[in-house]
């Protein structure tokens, strides 16, 4: 069993869902970022980490700002992987997912990227602008290095494509709460909760929901709907920016206790 399977197995026994915080590596600078990631990782079941890319077209203002801070602080792909290696050493059991835009992978070299990700202990990679139809590009590199590919799936993804996504996904299905870019939102739509129930009836893959998840109440609602995990990104960044590390820790704690 890989780290994802072990984690979801454990959560099932504990009757919990996964708290999956997202952090942009290097935000607001490499040192503070490492500290923030370690803080949230304590509470996390799974970590989702982003590599900063200058043109993140699936991301809203909060993550764009995080990217800008990270790049201005001199972050790049190699430094990100070095940081992940440190995080991996501190948290040997927790699955680490990477969110990376395609151009960063292409410039690093597809095979080299997946090989180095494996070395640092990354479990899955999500390339937000790569639909399942274009998977050929990275599939063999992923398989050779036993890295799961995670895909986005939304309320408007038609059934025939959902099946393709299940067929090629590993780790979990990253379900998007509703068609939008990333960012903290106030309410969770009924559509999303209905989608979770629908997906659960179609696949055995864990269903985790992200984009717009921002409160412990959202996590509780997702659990009730049968989801396997909740991904929170923008709100963590907002809280850290406004109130600092201690508030980030408190928020992560309250999220973790709502699973």
């Amino acid at each position: 069993m890989n780290r994802y399977q072990q984690t979801f197995e454990r959560l099932k026994k504990e009757d919990k869902i996964a708290f999956i915080p997202f952090w942009m590596l290097g935000d607001p600078n490499p040192e503070a970022s490492l500290e923030a990631v370690k803080t949230i990782a304590e509470q996390a079941d799974i970590l989702e980490l982003g590599l900063p890319f200058s043109d993140p077209l699936a991301d809203g203002p909060t993550i764009q700002a995080a990217v800008n801070r990270s790049l201005q602080a001199g972050m790049n792909t190699e430094k990100c992987l070095e940081q992940i290696m440190i995080i991996r050493a501190d948290f040997p059991e927790k699955p680490i997912g990477l969110l990376v835009y395609l151009n960063l992978v292409l410039q690093y070299g597809i095979n080299r990227f997946f090989t180095d990700c494996k070395k640092t202990g990354i479990d899955s990679i999500l390339i937000p602008e790569m639909p399942v139809e274009e998977i050929k590009l990275v599939e063999s590199a992923a398989q050779e290095n036993q890295i799961d590919l995670v895909f986005l799936l939304s309320t408007n993804t038609p059934q025939d494509r959902r099946q393709k996504i299940y067929d090629h996904s590993g780790g979990f299905v990253y379900t998007v709460s509703k068609p939008s870019i990333t960012g903290a939102k106030t309410d969770l739509s009924d559509d999303t909760l209905a989608l979770v129930q629908e997906l659960k009836s179609q696949t055995d893959l864990p269903i985790c929901v992200g984009f717009g998840i921002s409160t412990p109440e959202h996590i509780k609602a997702l659990k009730k709907a049968g989801a396997d995990g909740a991904i929170i990104g923008s709100e963590l960044i907002n809280i850290y920016q406004k109130e600092g590390l201690e508030a980030l820790n408190d928020f992560a704690l309250s999220c973790a206790s709502s699973t």
């Binding site: 200058s54 151009n103 690093y108």
Partner: peptide, 17 residues
Amino acid sequence: GCLHGSISKVNCDENGQ
């Protein structure tokens, strides 16, 4: 590289920015 939805030629630094 990849910018705005397709693989083509792009001007970027060695890291892909």
